[in-house]
């Protein structure tokens, strides 16, 4: 009982209720952003919306915290 979302065009399965961050992490995508000075890779850290490491762009919207945002069928995630 899963539905797909896409990450840079690649399909990733989501169990209903999972966050985008959890779905990416489970699919082995552990970083989806680079820091602005050092270009360091970043993914989940605090898992509860505190650290802002996990910012991600979904359906072209301004970046949001992937650990808080529940995935919806058809979501298109772009990493940078």
């Amino acid at each position: 009982m899963t539905f797909p979302i896409t990450v840079d065009g690649r399909s990733v399965p989501v169990v209903p209720g999972q966050t985008i961050g959890a779905a990416l992490h489970a699919a082995g995508v552990r970083s989806w952003r680079s820091t602005r000075f050092g270009g360091r890779p970043r993914g989940l850290f605090c898992g509860i919306g505190v650290c802002f490491d996990c910012l991600v762009s979904v359906n072209g919207r301004a970046p949001e915290r992937a650990c808080l945002l529940e995935a919806a069928p058809g979501d298109e995630v772009t990493t940078s």
Binding site: V15, G17, Q18, T19, G21, A22, A23, H25, A26, R30, S31, R40, P41, R42, G43, L44, F45, C46, G47, I48, D53, C67
Partner: peptide, 23 residues
């Protein structure tokens, strides 16, 4: 500590409890 794959202990727990994902 900023490498992906390093999480807070609570973060790992939240991932498991809220999304059923093992860190």
């Amino acid at each position: 500590w900023d490498l992906p794959g390093v999480l807070t202990a609570g973060g790992a727990q939240a991932l498991l409890k809220g999304s059923g994902v093992v860190a």
